[in-house]
Amino acid sequence: MISLIAALAVDRVIGMENAMPWNLPADLAWFKRNTLNKPVIMGRHTWESIGRPLPGRKNIILSSQPGTDDRVTWVKSVDEAIAACGDVPEIMVIGGGRVYEQFLPKAQKLYLTHIDAEVEGDTHFPDYEPDDWESVFSEFHDADAQNSHSYCFEILERR
């Protein structure tokens, strides 16, 4: 099963200049909980913004210009990325925008964090048809001392 995991502000903004323009430790914990011990696929820009392999996960970098870091697996196509994951129950696609666009048609599940923030962004989550998805989990949280904005975790499964 292919799943996408993303944090989205208003207007589906997911990033600005290779960074997330908010401070939500709870979302980072949600991300870790849902990706640990699963292969993660990301684009080169996302890889560069993280700066290191995510521990406890097979890191697969999709790029037309593969790098030389041998701590991760470099691939040039969506099919190659899927094959590099091996026989696993769930593959997690973690961004960025172009990689989400490439995998959305193949995805069966979306793990979304909806952030109540209007922020400037240069990267967006692809538009998706809500009628194609069923919400199977939703959990709202107010902003607090650690988390700069209110947010809602949601899991959607393709109908």
Results as ranks from 00 to 15, higher is better:
3 S>C: 00
5 I>L: 04
6 A>Q: 01
9 A>D: 02
10 V>A: 14
16 M>E: 02
19 A>F: 14
28 L>R: 00
29 A>S: 04
29 A>C: 02
29 A>Y: 01
30 W>K: 15
32 K>C: 02
33 R>M: 11
33 R>P: 02
36 L>N: 13
39 P>G: 05
40 V>M: 09
40 V>S: 12
41 I>A: 15
42 M>Q: 13
44 R>M: 09
44 R>P: 00
45 H>C: 03
46 T>A: 01
51 G>R: 07
55 P>Q: 07
60 I>T: 04
60 I>H: 06
63 S>G: 13
63 S>V: 10
64 S>M: 13
67 G>A: 12
67 G>V: 13
68 T>Y: 09
69 D>G: 10
71 R>A: 07
74 W>Q: 09
75 V>W: 11
75 V>S: 07
75 V>K: 09
77 S>E: 14
78 V>I: 04
79 D>T: 10
82 I>A: 12
82 I>M: 07
82 I>T: 09
83 A>K: 07
84 A>H: 12
84 A>N: 10
85 C>M: 15
86 G>K: 11
88 V>Q: 09
89 P>R: 07
89 P>H: 08
90 E>Y: 04
90 E>K: 02
91 I>E: 02
92 M>R: 01
94 I>L: 14
96 G>R: 01
99 V>P: 01
100 Y>V: 01
100 Y>M: 03
101 E>L: 08
101 E>D: 05
102 Q>S: 12
103 F>P: 02
103 F>L: 03
105 P>S: 08
106 K>L: 05
108 Q>L: 08
108 Q>G: 10
109 K>Q: 05
109 K>G: 10
112 L>K: 03
112 L>I: 10
113 T>A: 07
113 T>L: 00
115 I>E: 03
115 I>T: 11
116 D>N: 15
120 E>Q: 13
121 G>N: 00
122 D>H: 00
125 F>S: 01
129 E>H: 14
134 E>S: 07
136 V>G: 11
137 F>I: 15
139 E>N: 07
139 E>T: 09
139 E>Q: 07
140 F>H: 07
141 H>M: 05
146 Q>R: 05
146 Q>I: 09
149 H>S: 02
150 S>P: 04
152 C>N: 14
154 E>C: 15
155 I>K: 07
156 L>G: 07
156 L>I: 10
157 E>N: 07
158 R>S: 09
